[in-house]
Nucleic acid binder design. Sequence first.
RNA 1: GCCGGAGUGGCGGAAUUGGCAGACGCACUUGACUCAAAAUCAAGCGCUUCACGGCGUGCCGGUUCGAGUCCGGCCUUCGGCACCA
Length: 828
Amino acid sequence: MIEEKYSPYAIETKWQKYWEDNKTFKVEMDKSKPKSYVLEMFPYPSGNLHMGHVRNYSIGDVVARFRAMQGFNVLHPMGWDSFGMPAENAAIKHGIPPAKWTLENIENMTKQQKALGLAYDWDREIATCKEDYYKWTQWFFELFYEQGLAVKRKSAVNWCDNCNTVLANEQVIDGKCWRCDNEVHKKDLEQWFFKITDYAEELLDDLNLLDGWPERVKTMQKNWIGRSEGLEFSFDIPALNEKLPVYTTRPDTVQGVTFAVVPPEHPIVEKMLTGNPNEAELRAFCDKVRNTSDIERTSSESVKEGMYTGFDCVHPLTGRNVQIWITNYVLFDYGTGAVMGVPTHDARDWMFATKYNIEKILVIQPEGSELKLEEMTDAYEDDGVMVNSGKFDGMKNTDAMAAIMDEIEALGVGKRRVNYRLRDWLISRQRYWGAPIPVIYCPQCGEVLVPEEELPVRLPENISFDTGSVSPLAACESFVNCKCPKCGGDAKRETDTMDTFLCSSWYYLRYTDPKNTEMPFDKDVNDYWGPVDQYIGGIEHAILHLLYSRFFLKVLRDAGLVSYDEPFSRLLTQGMVIKDGAKMSKSLGNVVSPEEILEKYGADTARLFIMFAAPPERELEWSDQGVEGSFRFLNRVWRIVHYFSNVLDEKVTTYNTEALDDADKELRRVLHSGIKKVTDDIEQRFNFNTAISTMMEIVNALYAYKDAKKDYNPGLVHETISNLIKMLAPFVPHITEELWQGAIDANSSIHDQSWPSYDESAMKVDNVEIVLQINGKVRGRLVVPSEATKEELEKIAMADETLKASLGDAQIMKVICVPGRLVNVVAK
RNA sequence: GCCGGAGUGGCGGAAUUGGCAGACGCACUUGACUCAAAAUCAAGCGCUUCACGGCGUGCCGGUUCGAGUCCGGCCUUCGGCACCA
């Protein structure tokens, strides 16, 4: 029995409880079944779900439920990325302990997630801030340490004054902090790094394995890793008896070198400054450069400035004297930290040389024209023919590259080299709410790892956040002071915590075996579930999270913990939810909260609208009227099932396909071609919006069938409605469960049903309307047998009176027949 | 500057292999039901024309019997990277 009126609230609460009580979505490893791991990026427990979350989880839920109906053993878990700054800020502002704040938010958001009717195995829920999770985060740190991939290193790091902590390169966006938008500056500190650069090559190459990733994301990672091939070679500095190594991607231009440049940070600078007649001036210049902000310093628009050091070096090929300048436009931490200057063939060097009147030598001439140095206003950076380059003259510059590199290698002054833009991952954070780095500093033994059996290093509670510039942990003496695990003497703990991106780099592995107390996960279990077959999340993680996770997994693979190369086989990057053309934000006042929509229409309507309004990768413009439309559709489904419920009550589930009238055949055709379309749309293209529109067409066909006759075919009605409900089930799980148990089968859950299959023969029609064209323009339509061959088509078409009339006296050149589609007569 | 997307009605969007452009929905119009409204059901709905027809997928050109789709050249816009030598 189903009620006459659709009441979402009652239905949704009822079935959510039913699923929870029956553990409908609990899964276990089962090697006899094919697995599918569907994962949405786990949220930060900020307090409330927003529409972006709802979209994310709705997409994942449709995929997970669809795969389950297809017979896969589906792992679909949820958890919390629950370390991080906001909890700490809440503590500072409102005096609420971060753990309390976080756990309360998790509780509230879990309630909101459950109201959406998501098919999660809640028994696998994890939270990165809990001891049984961060114990293993620390365990991984120690693994990386033992592999030589976690190292403490002094360097100029990015510092955010507002967050009072260092940041990884990936967390600096346009020179600003990714979280608070505050301008970042450099600070010399000793910090922990993960050597992601050791994996640069593989991280780049393996992007080729990721066929199921958007091109956009792969390109972003490729650009970020930034591989370049070139030549590293050295200039001798006779006065210092030192060498100055430089790196270039344009070895063809080396004969045009007229100066060399170093940044103030370069170690050679100190040697050139001490006792230099211009020492004071040079030092003042270095300080000035060091004090300009990073944004200014690395902007391509900023003016190139420099000072001649008074030192010269010797060009290894020409023997020419080359002046060494200190400048503001060279990056110390890329390549060798020093660069050769070729004014004629590099735009930056041109500006610099022009400003300081440094000599320019042209070594490449464009083919077909001749450049004259005195007429040039800019560097010539394109290809051409070598000149002023001795034995290389006349060669194409592209050929000269290899030849010159060979020459330099033969002379022993340099060699070919690959450089990456990618920098090592700075993982230390001067914050409290994170996983403590499990290291102890002993005056006797130095840097010592906390022994595995003593993990986790627990975060102390009852901590003061009013500590000024020192991090709360550093100010907590009971935490800092400890005994050395090696010698037992007094020692001090590392007080930095780990970047939360480290916690989230392995959470997808923990879901496969979340209760394991011996290991982060069992290898056999993880190898069954992994890798994630379908990952779904926002584009904002294109580099950060997705790059770190890939790196993490490769290290774990090399340590023998997993047997696959990439963590996420397929990735879907969902678009943003916007309203009135802009991202929903409090300041714009265009926020629609999931709670108000759920209250007014229910979860099914919210999910349906989100899946219908736009393809998943695109932006989704929120429309109140669109939501109304989705609600209307669900009511329409409800009413038509209710209308046919007495027919369904006959429980006739078969029918004779040979004894169907036209109305039956049409309904059957719409159903079966619909099943095919919906299946393909979900499975192959993730076109959920068109899948839904196809189901709308099936509903429209049911309404047409209702009015087309009186003596309904009960088997066909049953087939159509039961399959329609099944296909709708992944999108709108509550209403379909109610309709299923109320009208089809009271003794089973719709979410245990198999995905419908279709019958090709049902999709066939006897007659089909084709188009008659003359010279590609539509001139008429014709109903023909759908089986008609090209020859038959032509015969039928040429006999058509309207076509004959339209053709008149024109001479027929050619007739093109496409069965089932058209006949095109080419005539003059 | 380099790399990668996108551009189709009033709006969200569809067209999967080159074959009827605009599926499905929203908005709108009309009709039925109603005292009335809402809801529902039915019909219409690219532009232009009284009509026949003509025009139409950012722009220009090409290939083809036929182009939203393929090719060449642009324009606009969004995103990423960018003093990485």
